[in-house]
Amino acid sequence: MSDRPHPFLIVVTALVYLFLMLPLVIVVGAALSDTTYLTFPPQGLSLRWFENIFEISAFRRTIITSLQIAFLGTMIALLIGIPAAYALNRFRIELPKWLGTLFVLPILVPEIVFGFALLKSFTVGTGAPIFLSLLIGHTLIVLPYVVRVISASLASFDFSVEEAAISLGSSPVKTFFTIVLPNIRAGVIAAFILAFITSLNDVSVSLFLTGPGISTLPIQILAHVEQFFDPTVASVSVLLMFLTVAVMAVVERTLGLTFLAK
C-alpha cells in the first residue's frame, strides 16, 4: 500500500478540473479582449469592457437590484426558514410528515412554471410593485434551500442539550439564542451562502417578475446579448464570478469554509 495516488487517478482529476475551469478561463480571456466582438483567445488586452459595464446604467442599476434582492430575500428566508426548520425537527414526531415536504415544493415545481404562477397570481392579481414581486419570488425559491440545510444541521443537534439549558433556568426563547443557534451556526452560514448565490444567479423566476425599470443582472445580461455582441457580457460574467468568490472568501476569512464539507 503506498500513500501516493495512482497516476491514472491524477490524470482523471486533472481532466475534471480542466473541464470545470476551462470555460471560466475562456470567459475571463474574452472579457479582457480589446476587440468590439466576443473572441477567444483575446486579441490585445484591455479593461475597457469592464469600464463599459459601469458606463451602461442598466448594468449599474441591475447589479444593485440583484444584490439587494439576494440579500433581503436571503434574510427573509432565514427569518422564516430557521424557525420552520427548528419546529420541523423539534416536533418531528408530533407534526404530520407532509409538512416538511411543503417547504421543498418551490424547487420541485419547475422554476419557470413557478415564476409564471407568481406573475399571474401575485403581480397581476394585486398590482404589487415589481421590486416586491421579485423579492417575494426570490424569497420563495431560496426558502427550500434554507429549510433543507438548516434541517440537516438540526438533525445532528441533540435536543436534550436544549432541555438541559432550560432545566438550568434559561427560558426557552433565551435558550434558542444562546444554545440552539450557536450550535447550528455552520448550517445557517451555509444556508446563507447557498441562498444568496441561488438568488443572485436566478433567471427563470426573475424572467417573469422583472418589469419596466427594474431588472436583475442575469436578465440584463440576457437582454444585452440579444442586442449587442461585444465583450461586456463576458466582463459582467467575470464580475458575477468574482462577486460569488468574494462572498465565499469573506466567509472563509471570518468563519472558515471547512464546515461546508461536514
Binding site: D158, S160, V161, E163, A164, I166, S167, G169, S171, P172
Partner: peptide, 17 residues
C-alpha cells in the same frame, strides 16, 4: 414552566453544551 422549577437534571447522553 421547567426553567422556573429549579431542578438539576443529568441526562443519559450527557447533553453538554
Amino acid at each position: 414552566p421547567t426553567h422556573k422549577r429549579d431542578i438539576g437534571l443529568v441526562f443519559q447522553n450527557y447533553a453538554l453544551f
